[in-house]
Amino acid sequence: MRRASGTENQKKREGRLAGKTVVENSFFGIHPLLASPKKFSKENLIRWIITATGWITVIILTLIMLLLFTEGLPIFSTTNPFSFIFTTDWYPVSDPPVFGILSFIVGSLMVTLTALVIAVPIGVAASAFLAEIATPTLREIIKPIIELLAGLPSIVLGFIGFLLLAPVVQNAFHLSTGLNGLTAGIMLAFICLPTIVSISEDSLSAVPKEYKEAAYALGATKWQTIRRVLIPAARSGIMASVMLGVGRAIGETMVVLMVAGGRLALPNFITDPLSAMTGRIAIEINNAVFGGLQYQALFAMGIVLFLMTLAVNIIADLVLEKQRRRYA
């Protein structure tokens, strides 16, 4: 919930920026007329800091976008945007170079989807277990461990995938290599699991206990209460946790670089070796001539990545907004 309310806070902040009504005359529960002058100015200071932070965030984000676009967009004067996105030939150093990133878009989508298919059910189940079934003591032990996992450097997970998981996947599916989309997807699932579990658990625990009591008092079982009352009531937080998880999975570079196989062709199956956009950018950006065509193409790939995450967030926001309105 803490982190999930980010978009809402942001909206409020934007409302304030746009000069809409300031609703904080009872900030921290103190009415300005009742507060001492000293407290009043402290309150002003806090408001000022929050406003400034909001502005700085907006400015930095705008600058990042500007950088991406000024460095990336020029590629479209030599490569048609349609063939850039929808073709699979990637010969960045040929003469003339060819830039088609479809293989990498598909690669990114495939590993991310695989990660979600694995992480969402496990994550939601684990968070429901922590929130409703585990004893408080057990929860206090497990939750910090999960949050610690979230801080594990992804290169460590990359090693684990490379050394332990890849051989297992290779043998299980009789593949020529264990470094492929499936291995990457499973490792990405580990990357987004802590986010999903931790935030979902927060929002499940934040469901008013009155709902829970009402369900149990009507003779609902634990499972029915979780499925029919708690999860629906916490769905905006759960959705937000999944979206943050998607964000981490799409943006993750090191793991896909290490275990996805790195093949440049369009993957047909999830068990094919493949490349994701992030990995491709990371590998090539050092060899690209500053300001050259390859350099521009890599930045343009960054724009695509950026727009994809943006789309995920906008869709999530729309879904949540719709649900909020339904039971407001």
Partner: peptide, 26 residues
Amino acid sequence: VGMVFQKPNPFPMSIFENIAFGPRVH
């Protein structure tokens, strides 16, 4: 043995869904 609480605590669902909740879980 059913129970009604101090603070009205309907589920965040429709009126129909609220009443149908019990029969459904049973």
